[in-house]
Write a protein that binds this DNA or RNA. Structure first.
Lengths: 237, 237
DNA sequence: CTCTGGTATATTGTATACAATCTTTCCAAG
DNA sequence: CTTGGAAAGATTGTATACAATATACCAGAG
């Protein structure tokens, strides 16, 4: 996948990549302060590149910067999540529509492989649950990113990368139960089918449903959890 | 309009705002190198805040940063423009759809006023053509931003701000001929009408047409111009 | 006991210095 | 005349120092 708007290709861009990773994977949990000097020593560099990475992460929405008061790992309210899923459905649906007319056999094969891997994994057992989630997220990313790539709109790719950059902590909910994974797999097959036939409308419709289904699973498990934590609960994820 | 992802609210954020303005208004034309020290002295600050502004502008797509080789004001190919208009139609169409269900009388009044101002301006003469373009761009922005605001999705607003941040030099083409302005005004009325009636589907359809029409006008005048410049022409805008 | 004000501390914001890297120039060899 | 390559110059990348600002803590008045 070509990278258009990445400001760098190497070196101090790594600081940004590492920070991003740390944020997405849940170190520095949502709401926690990101003191520059601490990040700097954590990452083994000075404050200067850290600052740039923070500015960039803020532009992407991963952190919030308050003037003279520093950066905070972004926390998400339920409304935020709803907004993001709404846009994801719009953008990925559009990507699927566009992809139907331009996707190459090679790209279809890649998606096919990812879909198959996700199906097979239902019968595998992983050493650690962590490994399993990692694998699932990975294969799922291949599936979705290939569609974005096939859509052939660089800006669209950039926007999707932004909106999907939500702390994984939330996305792992998807993969909790077997039944939901089966349904997700079914959607993957429907989408693949529509793309193979070049049916853009159907590809878009299935993609939208797929994403809304994911949203509902997430919100449901979220609600269940916050109910378990009992009352006095914030609306924050 | 609430600002969600602006990393600052003041001070050195001004450097960014000023840089952004310079870029959009065509100083530092597309393709020109943005040497940090020069920008710093132009803006009366040191390289440090300039660098941050550049990183941010790069995240927004206004400049490209090449590692160890500095920043360049982004130039746009025709394909880039097509991609952007495609996304604009998607996002603004969606915004119009959402707005139809939530727009307030106050917001409708604001749009109404902007539409009327654009219509009246057809019979006015301005001191300088520059003033006219500025006025038209302004009123048009009010119209479109109010819809985004009424849609009530912060991320959507942020994305639209990004995608509309194209050097004005291109957008001024819109306003060249009287006939085209009349048609634009007609679209504004149609959209307003649909929003007033709460008809989201129609609002979306009209918005999409409105944007595609603008795209076509731009591309046409662009083609005319590059033909005039004669052969040996780049595909760059 | 609470509130106000002021000082100390922590942290951010900016400038500057220096190191790393790229670009240009110029000269010599082919 | 072209090509290779080394040195000089320009510019970016990073670290550090200091100034500006916010926060925490404590004392004293009410």
């Amino acid at each position: 996948m070509t990278k258009l708007y990445t400001s760098d290709e190497s070196s101090a861009d790594q600081v940004y990549q590492r920070l991003r990773r740390l944020l997405i994977e849940g170190h520095y949990p949502p709401g926690s302060r990101l003191v520059e000097e601490r990040l700097a020593s954590d990452l083994g560099v000075s404050r200067t590149p850290v600052r740039q990475a923070l500015v960039r992460a803020a532009a992407e929405g991963l952190v919030q910067i308050f003037p003279n008061r520093g950066a905070v790992a972004r926390s998400f309210t339920i409304d935020d999540l709803l907004e993001m899923y709404d846009l994801r459905a719009l953008l990925e649906g559009h990507a699927a529509f566009l992809a139907a007319q331009r996707i190459t056999p090679d790209q279809l094969a890649r998606m096919e492989a990812a879909a198959a891997a996700l199906e097979d994994s239902l019968n595998h057992t992983f050493a650690r649950r962590e490994d399993e989630v990692h694998f699932l997220v990975e294969q799922n990313a291949v599936f979705h990113q290939t569609i974005a790539e096939a859509a052939g709109n660089q800006r669209l790719i950039a926007m999707l990368n932004q909106i999907v950059a939500v702390p994984l902590q939330f996305r792992s909910f998807y993969w909790y139960r077997k039944e939901e994974r089966q349904i997700s797999n079914f959607f993957h097959r429907s989408i693949l089918n529509a793309l193979t036939l070049g049916d853009g409308d159907r590809a878009r419709a299935m993609m939208r449903e797929h994403i809304f289904y994911g949203r509902d699973v997430l919100l449901q498990s979220r609600r269940a959890e916050s109910a378990a934590v009992a009352s006095g609960e914030e609306n924050e994820l």
